[in-house]
Design a protein around this nucleic acid. Structure first.
Length: 427
RNA sequence: GUGGAUGUAGCUCAGUUGGUUAGAGCACUAGAUUGUGGUUCUAGGGGUCGCGGGUUCGAGUCCCGUCUUCCACCCCA
């Protein structure tokens, strides 16, 4: 019986694994550069943990199951609830600020499509306990620092940044009741994905005043903070939120990533729990789904039974990123060596097999990666194998070894070789 | 969950109006090469043509179902 891989999953053969490691290693390096430390949690949690934030409809999009003790569990679709749970458990003993990152493997029971699979990896970074917009700047910077390290330029990608606080202040100022905001955000978030007429129609259903709807439409097209004042009156809350946004952009400019960043009132994020700065990084053309998204969430820890604690963070999946890197020619499988040996030990005569094994073991003991042929093939064959394995150098045990105690060291890229006393090489 | 496209060797694909024993390139293995790799040449292994049913004397080819993959929708933490 032939069994195939489950829908929406990937097999990572060595070449694909090299790609995955390339991405994940970059994530880890960028996190460490920016002072984040790594954490991880279990790959399954109580199902209830994911219902707290998102309600019952989320259950259909989770892989959930019951264990033998009757516990309702789910494979993690995100790691933020786990982060909240872990931080809550040790909140009083953790040094601040809490700057943690993770590269969890996540699963969502959705139908796969371009840039979205049912199992994937997601880089998460979070700063917990820092009220200052500096924390948002650090998160956005770290994310851009990584993308920049892949040689993506501001012509390739854009960080679109807005503020839930600013949006709420402005909307409330033009007559939207606070309790209506939660139902309006998801509509605003859809704007780039639907026709203008459909967007207007959805707003009209939710909002009675046609004039208010027109004002919102104008606001959604704002790409500079100063323009907001020309569309609506500003109250203190709005001015304060604007100052915060301005400071964020000033910080990002100081950090040297200002050219990647644009203010965009249209960035809302569908999720209800965002409370401050929100952002997404998109490809400049805008043909792919978001490369990453994040923002400030001030209520999450308390939602999970902890104290009130401000936090900001972001998540970046591996699928869209890989598509973008391939489109930009920044990721080619053949440039990622799946195995790179320091040495390959060949033996010219079957009688030298034992010596070859000893030499191999000695080189390994010294910390070199080293391999040898398991059967006494012709020397040409062994060199071919050395080449296939990507060996930098090939050591040949031949008559020089028996006659003068010397090993031949062949440089595989140049083809030059020299005889070196075995004792010296293995010293 | 809805719709469209798709499926032939490990990979990329050919396969005539339905007709004998299903092909190529690449990859893999072995040999040409008994002390020197990347090139070349030769040979070999590998397919119940996604799976199941139907039509037919006969199905890779036509019909139905199903699964997979891809694309879009719903959703997007």
């Amino acid at each position: 019986m032939k069994i195939q891989a489950v829908k929406g999953t990937r097999d990572f053969y060595p070449p694909q694994m090299a790609v995955r490691n390339f991405i994940v290693d970059g994530w880890k390096a960028a996190s460490k550069r920016c002072g984040f430390v790594q954490y991880d949690g279990p790959i399954f949690e109580y199902l209830q943990m994911y219902q707290v934030k998102s309600g019952d409809e989320i259950v259909e999009q989770l892989f959930n199951f019951e264990d033998r003790g009757g516990r309702r569990l789910a494979i993690r679709p995100e790691i933020t609830p786990t982060l909240a749970r872990m931080v809550n458990q040790q909140i009083s003993s953790l040094p601040r600020p809490i700057k943690w990152f993770s590269v969890p493997r996540l699963c969502r029971a959705e139908r796969p499509q371009k840039g979205r699979l049912r199992e994937f990896f997601q880089w998460n970074i979070d700063v917990i306990g820092v009220e200052d917009v500096l924390a948002d700047a650090e998160v956005i910077y770290c994310c851009l620092d990584y993308l920049r390290s892949l040689r993506l330029t501001s012509a390739d990608i854009t960080a679109r940044i807005s503020s839930r606080r600013l949006l709420a202040a402005v909307l409330m100022n033009i007559g939207i009741a606070e309790e209506r905001l939660a139902s309006i955000y998801p509509i605003l978030d859809k704007k780039p994905k639907i026709p203008a007429e459909a967007f207007e129609e959805m707003l009209n259903k939710e909002i009675d005043s046609a004039a208010t709807v027109q004002t919102i439409i104008r606001l959604m097209n704002v790409h500079a903070v100063e323009e907001i004042g020309r569309i609506v009156e500003l109250n203190d809350a709005a001015r304060q939120a604007m100052q915060e946004v301005s400071r964020l952009f000033a910080l990002l400019t100081l950090m040297g990533v200002g050219e990647y960043c644009r203010f965009d009132m249209g960035i809302v994020r569908g999720l209800a729990y965002y409370t401050g700065i929100v952002f997404e990084v998109h490809d400049a053309v805008g043909e792919l789904r978001a490369i990453c998204g994040g923002g400030r969430y001030d209520n999450l820890l308390s939602d999970f039974g902890g104290p009130h604690m401000t936090a900001t963070g972001m998540g970046m999946g591996d699928c869209v990123l890989e598509i973008l890197l391939r489109e930009k020619g920044l990721l080619k499988d053949d440039t990622l060596p799946i195995q790179r040996l320091d040495y390959f030990v060949a033996y010219a005569d079957a009688g030298l097999f034992d010596r070859a094994v000893q030499v191999t073991a000695a080189l390994r003991e010294k910390g070199f990666s080293c391999d040898f042929s398991y059967k006494p093939a012709a020397l040409g064959k062994q060199l071919k194998q050395a080449d296939a394995l990507g060996a930098a150098k090939c050591i040949i045990a031949g008559q020089e070894l028996t006659a003068e105690g010397k090993l031949v060291v062949r440089d595989m890229s140049s083809g030059t070789q020299e005889s070196i006393p075995a004792a010296q090489l293995l010293k």
